[in-house]
């Protein structure tokens, strides 16, 4: 394991060291100590390495991640795993607003709560939240899956496209064009897989969730409304 002391060595040195790692590197296991809420920790990684951050992070941790597994042994500030492409990001604590925003792939696991706008405009990422999510989560979410073991705040899935939302607890309110949908066997299978990969299969069963999705009335062209477009 390689240990990197962020407060001694600095952010730019950390990220350029991690960026230099390529597919065949032997240095596959990294530990970052003294993160102290710094911004942009382990952003833009593109190698199958494992990075553990020992403490809480500030804005944009693990943004644009490809291939790497980033674990935060604390809480994450705004925009964690923003625009992630692939790989896995696991937050042991809470995540601040817009976690996983615009993510195109990979898996984001938040073991605490996520605040507002979780998964906003998600485009293929899978997000598993063990706790609750805040208001306006999955706003304009296009594809991918969001699994919430706790409750969802106001306006869940407003202006939703084709992302699937699974919530076990209560939903304070659904956003425009977001509706509850039938849970079919293929959805239970997706949920079972995500709960397992999201380290939550011991906490919840697929049957306990409800599925929400788009009513497809807002984003599809409707000839009757042509004059108002």
């Amino acid at each position: 394991m390689q240990t990197f002391d962020l407060s001694a060595q600095g952010l730019r040195a950390l990220n350029s060291t991690l960026h230099a790692l390529k597919g065949q590197t032997n240095q596959t296991s990294w530990e970052v100590i003294n993160p102290k809420g710094a911004h942009a920790i382990a952003v833009g990684l593109d190698a199958p390495v494992d990075v553990t951050v020992r403490g809480s992070t500030g804005y944009y941790c693990a943004g644009m991640n490809k291939q790497a597994t980033v674990r935060v042994k604390g809480s994450a500030g705004p925009g964690v795993a923003e625009n992630m492409m692939s790989g896995t990001v696991i937050i042991d604590g809470d995540a601040s607003q817009y976690a996983g925003a615009t993510g195109r792939g990979g898996l984001l696991v938040i073991k605490g709560n996520a605040s507002s706008r979780c998964g906003i405009s998600m485009k293929g990422i899978d997000i598993v939240v063990h706790g609750n999510i805040g208001h306006m989560s999955a706003f304009m979410a296009q594809s991918g899956n969001m699994v919430v073991l706790g409750d969802a705040g106001e306006a869940l899935g407003d202006s939703l496209y084709e992302a699937r939302l699974f919530v076990r607890g209560s939903v304070k309110s659904l956003g425009a064009d977001c509706i509850e949908k039938e849970m079919r066997p293929e959805h239970l299978a997706i949920l079972a897989d995500l709960l397992k990969r999201g380290e939550a299969d011991h906490l919840a069963k697929p049957e306990e969730f409800k599925r929400y999705g788009s009513a497809r009335k807002l984003y599809t062209f409707n000839i009757d409304n042509a004059s108002s477009y």
Binding site: G37, A38, S56, G58, S96, Q97, S116, G134
Partner: peptide, 27 residues
Amino acid sequence: DPIACKPAVMAETDQYVAFGSEYRAMV
């Protein structure tokens, strides 16, 4: 405000209650 896009973090111990726009203010 209800939209809450301006950041805020709080911390409480037996000794104090602290507020920071970001966690790093309190480290």
